[in-house]
């Protein structure tokens, strides 16, 4: 853990110094996490740099790129290029129809050639991404799971690539990452939306949730055993987020509604970007409102009253859930 006073302030703020600081949490959720790029665009468009970023899984990947000082535009261009390469390695690796998952499902002799997540990262991360946490322009906390200790590990120093690889190491697709003697896996197993690890780090905490959403009735066909299995870990992560939000909430919560996308549908980059456009507008509106408030002290009230439709929608969802729970 980085001592609180050590936070870097890489660029001069463009608004008055009384402007509140923002901590940004980017959640895990596979291909839906491509939407994080749009959220980072909001920060660029507002000329606002997060004081600190936390990321889980795909959120750690884009968090690392942005914390390295790359612009959202550059990250978007790079990601689009990588994902659109015909017969590209990444596409092959991440395609929903890729071999490892299929073979796993059939419980046929399970292959030894699970992918090393580092290999994927070499492909996905722009070359300018920092090698070490110490070289980042914005402090970063990467969330991973210690498999045998069954607990969350927050990585914020040392080698960056292995940390992000660990955070993304979804079992059945990737090999676990061994770091400092610990066997590490996807951070989404313990914390798919890591806003709580940013507690006290900044005036305002923003959480981007890409853990999924309900499917519209039109799309509800009986799932194949394959899609049931692939989707099931997403349902679990969604359940973790739901329980977590009952005990604590970030100041700004954005539920990216890109529900119709399969967790492994990385090739549908453009569609995810389009679907997440609304969430981008929501984030921008809410951040603008928070930033125009004069002092940080006024924030809680301001951010609450400013909350337009999305939090309301979430609340109604929770209420519905609570009603069911209470019989």
């Amino acid at each position: 853990m980085r001592p609180p006073g050590q936070a870097l302030q890489p660029r001069k703020p463009t608004l008055p110094v009384t402007r509140p600081t923002v901590a940004l949490a980017l959640g895990g959720g596979g291909a839906r996490g491509l939407a994080h790029i749009l959220m980072l665009e909001v920060f660029d468009e507002l000329g606002l740099k997060p004081k600190i970023i936390a990321g889980t899984s795909i959120g750690a990947l884009f968090g690392a790129a942005y914390a390295s000082g790359l612009s959202a535009r550059l990250i978007r261009a790079h990601t689009e290029e990588v994902l659109s390469q015909r017969l590209g390695l990444t596409r092959y690796l991440l395609s929903a129809r890729s071999e490892p998952v299929q073979r796993f499902l059939n419980i046929l002799p399970i292959r030894s050639s699970l992918l090393k997540p580092e290999l994927l990262l070499d492909h996905m991360l722009p070359s300018k991404v920092a090698r070490d946490f110490a070289h980042l322009a914005i402090p970063l906390k990467v969330v991973a799971t210690d498999f045998y200790a069954q607990e969350q590990i927050v990585l914020d120093s040392g080698d960056l690539r292995s940390a992000v690889a660990a955070s993304m190491a979804l079992p059945a697709l990737f090999t676990p990452v061994t770091r400092d003697g610990r066997v590490l896996m996807d951070g989404g197993l313990v914390n798919p939306l890591p806003f709580d690890v940013l507690k006290g780090d900044a005036d305002v905490t923003v959480a981007i949730d890409v853990s999924g959403a309900a499917l519209g009735p039109g799309n509800r066909v009986q799932p194949t055993a394959f899609s049931a299995l692939v989707s099931s870990s997403q349902i679990l992560q969604r359940s973790i987020v739901r329980e977590k939000l009952k005990a604590q909430q970030p100041d700004i919560y954005i539920d990216v509604e890109v529900d119709e996308f399969h967790v492994l549908e990385f090739h549908r980059f453009k569609q995810v970007m389009t679907a997440a456009g609304q969430a981008k507008d929501q984030l921008k509106r809410q951040l603008e409102r928070v930033l125009t408030s004069q002092t940080a002290e006024m924030l809680p009230a301001a951010s609450q009253s400013s909350a337009p439709s999305p939090p309301k929608k979430r609340l109604s969802g929770l209420k519905r859930f609570a009603r069911k729970r209470s019989l």
């Binding site: 399970i110 799971t145 079992p171 197993l189 977590k244």
Partner: peptide
């Protein structure tokens, strides 16, 4: 390092535990 079946089973168990842990809060 866990094998694949062990990793997948263990990961699912971790996810179950995480739901309960968050709920207990």
């Amino acid at each position: 390092v866990p094998g694949t079946v062990e990793a997948v089973t263990g990961a699912t168990q971790l996810l179950f535990h995480s739901i309960t842990r968050e709920k207990l809060k």
